[in-house]
Design a protein around this nucleic acid. Structure first.
Lengths: 179, 179
DNA sequence: AAAAATATGTCAACATGGCTGACGTAATTT
DNA sequence: AAATTACGTCAGCCATGTTGACATATTTTT
C-alpha cells in the first residue's frame, strides 16, 4: 500500500513529522528559461499528431501506419532498410503495419531492378489519397501558424527545429526534406 | 499471403499489367511547402524525446513516468484531475505510473486542505533530482539550438510552437508555462 | 437530512506498437 | 563455395494507452 496520504493540517513542507521531505517550490522558467521550449515542444507535438487520429480510426489504423504511409508517399520506391532508418524502429515492428497496409491495398512492393533482394515500396492510388487526407489537417495547422509570422520569424522556427535534430542526423534530414 | 512482389522488368507505373496502379511521383515540398515543417516536427521531436531515455532506463521507468515527474515538479501540489488534463490521458493510465513513482519515493500525495477529496501531488527530493536529471540533456539541446538564432528568430520559433498548439488550449498552455 | 455530484482509486480486459531473439530464404558479393 | 546482405517471419515480452464498471470519501445541492 502506498496509501500514505498526508493530512491537510500538515504543511507540505513538514508532513507527518518527516521534515523537509516534500518540495513545494516549482521548477521555474525564471531559473531555467529553456523549459519554455521543452514544454512548447511537448504541447505542440501533442496537438499536432492528434489531427490525423480521427481519419486513421476510420481505417482501423494507428499512428504507425501514418508514418509509414507518409514516408512511402514522400519517397516512392524506398527500400525497407531506409524506411527503418527514418523511423528508427525494428523491422519486426515495421513488418506488422506494413503487412496491413499492403493487404489493404495502400502500398505495394516491387522487386528491386538492380538488386533483386530489395523490396521497393510504392504507394497505390488509395495510398496516395490516404497520405494526403492524413496530412491535410496538419498542413492547415502549419499554414495558419506560419501566417502570423514574419519571414525572419519563420526562418527562426525552421532553423530551431533543424538544430533540435541530432547533429549526426541533420544532413540526412536535410536530404530527406529537400530544399 | 500478400506476396505480390512485382518483377523488376515491369516499371512501377505499369506493373503486372495493372496499368497505373502504382505511383512513382513523390509528394513534393515544392507543391506543399508545409511538408517541411510537418517532417521537421517529426524528426525534432523524435530526437528530443530520445534524450532522457537512457536515464529513465536506469530507473526502470518509461516516458510516461518522465511526463508525470516533470509536471509534478513544475506544479507542486497539482491535483490529479489537472494533471490528467495536461497529459490528455485517462486516470487509469496515470494511475499505474503514478503508483510506481509514489512507491519509489519520487512523489507523495497530500490531502487537499480545503477539499479533502483531492490528492495533491508533490515531488520528494529524489523526485526533484530525477526531474532535473531528465531535463538536463533537453535543456542543453534547446540552448544549443537557440544559440545559433537571432532574437527575432528565437521569437519566431516560440511563436510558431505556440500557434501549433490547439487554439482552445493556447491560454492554458500559456498559463502553465508562465511568462 | 437526504440526494446528487465530484475527486479519486481500482479491477478487469483489451489494443497498439515498441522490443529481443531465433531462424529462414533468396540474392549478391567475396 | 562461402560469407554477407536484404528481407521476412514466428514467438513472446513489455509499456502504455483504451473502455467499462464499480467503490469510497467528501462536498454541494436540494
Amino acid at each position: 500500500m502506498a496509501d500514505v496520504i498526508l493530512k491537510s493540517g500538515e504543511t507540505p513542507d513538514r508532513p507527518h513529522g518527516r521534515t523537509g521531505r516534500l518540495i513545494a517550490e516549482p521548477l521555474s522558467v525564471d531559473d531555467r528559461p529553456e523549459i519554455t521550449f521543452v514544454e512548447l515542444l511537448f504541447f505542440a507535438y501533442r496537438d499536432f499528431i492528434s489531427d490525423p487520429d480521427t481519419v486513421l480510426a476510420a481505417y482501423g489504423f494507428g499512428r504507425a501506419h501514418h508514418r509509414v504511409v507518409h514516408f512511402v508517399n514522400r519517397h516512392p520506391g524506398i527500400r525497407v532498410a531506409d524506411l527503418l532508418d527514418i523511423l528508427n524502429i525494428t523491422k519486426q515492428s515495421l513488418g506488422r503495419v506494413l503487412k496491413q497496409l499492403i493487404d489493404g491495398g495502400f502500398i505495394e512492393q516491387v522487386q528491386g531492378p538492380q538488386d533483386r533482394r530489395q523490396r521497393l515500396l510504392y504507394p497505390t492510388e488509395s495510398g496516395r489519397a490516404l497520405a494526403l487526407r492524413l496530412m491535410a489537417p496538419q498542413e492547415r495547422r502549419i499554414a495558419e501558424a506560419l501566417d502570423s509570422l514574419s519571414p525572419e520569424e519563420r526562418k527562426g522556427a525552421e532553423l530551431f527545429l533543424r538544430q533540435v535534430v541530432d547533429g549526426d542526423q541533420r544532413d540526412m534530414v536535410a536530404r530527406l526534406i529537400g530544399q
